[in-house]
Computed example of a mutant assay.
Amino acid sequence: MTASNTLPVFSLHEGSLPLLISIPHLGTRIPDDIAATMTPVAQRTDDCDWHLDRLYACARRLGAAMLTPSYARYVIDLNRPPDGANLYPGQDTTGLLPVDTFDKEPLYRDGQLPDEAEMARRRDIYWKPYHQALSEHLAALKAKHGKVLLWEAHSIRSHVPRFFEGRLPDFNFGTANGASAVAGLAEALAAVVERHGAYTTIANGRFKGGYITRQYGQPAEGVHAVQLELTQITYMEEQMPYAYDETRAAQVEPLLDELVKTALERVRAA
């Protein structure tokens, strides 16, 4: 599926395992027509989940499928419900069509905020194709293997006062309080991190899993979903130009490999 400027909306790398890694906030592109309504700060795409396709290359080599978008979450947030409902009632969050950055800098020029018609247009062009691909590939993997693990890969700056106080734990596992995956999966993954000893971790804390985890995780039907919100300081520089840190990443990659394998084992045994 392509957008109006012919760039593919998403890329799908197919694998051999019952594992799909979705990275819905990896994209950095903003179409020219949308960019024309936005402030210069939008072009920095500060709130991108930088470099996660590179960090998860180990899982892809193991045989994981990987689904990634081309366009930035500033165009539309693929991990939000199509109606834009707040997944964390009572807490501050950004919406389906974000209007400001995590630091509350405005993304749109005065008088240029997208209206309902524009929201519907972007849903059709960007949101629906990604979710159709996600749904269809999960179904194909389930038909082939009987069970499937959806790993929602996310990252965020270690300090974002808008959303949480102080420094966020490094590895934040979410399974919608246990509803989206086999019982105890988030806790088992957190235990792996704790044994490693180099990073902090929590299960179903501030980040319990976004729309994709909650929508597609149906363990009774053989589809298990877990979200990992990883602090960016563990593998990259958190300030512009948001450079990948080879030394830090080399410490994280083997742990990610162990975590993915642990999750797959628990799903297969469920």
Rank of each mutant, 00 (worst) to 15 (best):
T39Y: 03
R61P: 04
D83Y: 05
D77Q: 09
I76D: 00
T68L: 14
L78N: 06
T45E: 03
A57W: 03
Y74G: 00
R60Y: 14
V41Q: 10
T45N: 12
D83V: 05
L87A: 07
Q43E: 08
A57S: 15
D53H: 13
W50A: 00
A72N: 08
V41H: 11
R61I: 12
Q43R: 15
N86L: 07
H51E: 04
R60C: 13
P81H: 08
A85Q: 14
C48Y: 10
G84I: 06
R73P: 01
Y56E: 01
P82I: 00
Y56I: 02
R44I: 11
R80F: 09
L67N: 08
A72Y: 02
A72G: 06
D49Q: 06
R73M: 02
P82L: 03
P69R: 00
R73C: 01
A42F: 08
R60N: 13
L52A: 09
A57G: 06
N86F: 03
H51G: 06
M38C: 04
C48R: 09
D46M: 04
D53T: 12
Q43K: 15
W50R: 12
D47M: 01
A57R: 15
V75P: 01
N79C: 08
R44D: 11
N79W: 03
P82Y: 00
L78W: 10
R61A: 14
N79S: 11
S70H: 12
A57I: 01
R54C: 02
D47K: 01
A42C: 08
T68A: 12
Y56W: 14
R73Q: 05
T39E: 08
C48D: 05
Y88K: 11
A59V: 06
S70F: 02
Q43A: 15
M38R: 05
A59N: 11
R80S: 05
D46W: 06
N86M: 12
D77P: 10
D47H: 04
L52C: 04
R44W: 09
L55R: 02
D47A: 05
I76G: 00
P69C: 08
P81I: 00
N86Q: 10
Q43S: 13
A59E: 10
P69K: 05
M38N: 09
P40Q: 14
V41G: 07
L52G: 06
R60V: 15
L52R: 00
